[in-house]
């Protein structure tokens, strides 16, 4: 066995990363090689010194600073409120969307079937999505003991809404504009 290669194995041995067979193999070599035996002793001393070097501590007010920084960021961000607001916006936009569809059907008959299908499917997906989110939030609040489910729900809610409240709000507003434009268009055509 080449000693250079053996040095790496000695370190792996000291690191506890060698299996039994390799460990026996390396120990046999060390017993018969003074260079490697010397290397093992030096490494043991180095490991000992490294283990005695203490962990360092930050300044005494560190935890307080971290916590106040988190609180400030939380107040500015207020994820809970933004989630709720985004959910409300998305939900009301969906409701209006469905209302507009109903109106469209009621007001005009010239709307192509493809457009109706498209509008219908988007509204359906949106409604299911919104209802699922609402249900998740509701059940999470209701069953406060089921922490696993709650954490999962919160993750989903936060991931989808909390991270993109502005995006959701924009979509909701665009839906409102769309509803308004549809209404105008349909009324113009009707008259």
């Amino acid at each position: 066995m080449r000693c250079e290669f053996c040095e790496e194995k000695i370190m792996e041995y000291l690191d506890g990363e060698l299996d039994l067979q390799k460990k026996e193999h390396i120990l046999r070599h060390i017993n018969s090689c003074s260079r490697c035996s010397h290397f093992l002793t030096a490494m043991r001393a180095e490991y000992m010194m490294l283990s005695e070097l203490p962990l360092l501590s930050p300044s005494p007010g560190f935890t307080r600073k971290v916590m106040s920084s988190i609180r400030n960021k939380r107040a500015a961000h207020a994820p809970g409120e933004s989630v709720l607001m985004a959910a409300v916006l998305a939900f009301s936009a969906l409701a209006l969307h469905i209302l507009a569809l109903w109106n469209a059907e009621y007001l005009i008959f010239t709307l192509t079937s493809a457009a109706r299908w498209f509008a219908g499917i988007t509204a359906f997906i949106g409604a299911v999505f919104g209802a699922a989110l609402w249900l998740m939030n509701f059940t999470a609040k209701l069953f406060t003991f089921s922490q696993d489910i709650l954490v999962f729900n919160q993750r989903v809610l936060l991931d989808i809404l909390g991270e993109y409240p502005v995006g959701i709000a924009v979509i909701a507003l665009l839906s409102l504009v769309e509803v308004f434009l549809w209404g105008r268009l349909l009324q113009t055509k009707k008259s």
Binding site: P58, F62, T63, G80, Q154
Partner: peptide, 28 residues
């Protein structure tokens, strides 16, 4: 972590206390 995710931000203080020396040592 679960507690923090449930909205209890103060629980995070325990994690800061637990890991601050290790994080600080690595950074240093």
């Amino acid at each position: 972590i679960k507690q923090v995710l449930l909205g209890d931000a103060t629980a995070f203080e325990i994690l800061v206390e637990r890991y601050k020396s290790k994080i600080f040592t690595l950074a240093y």
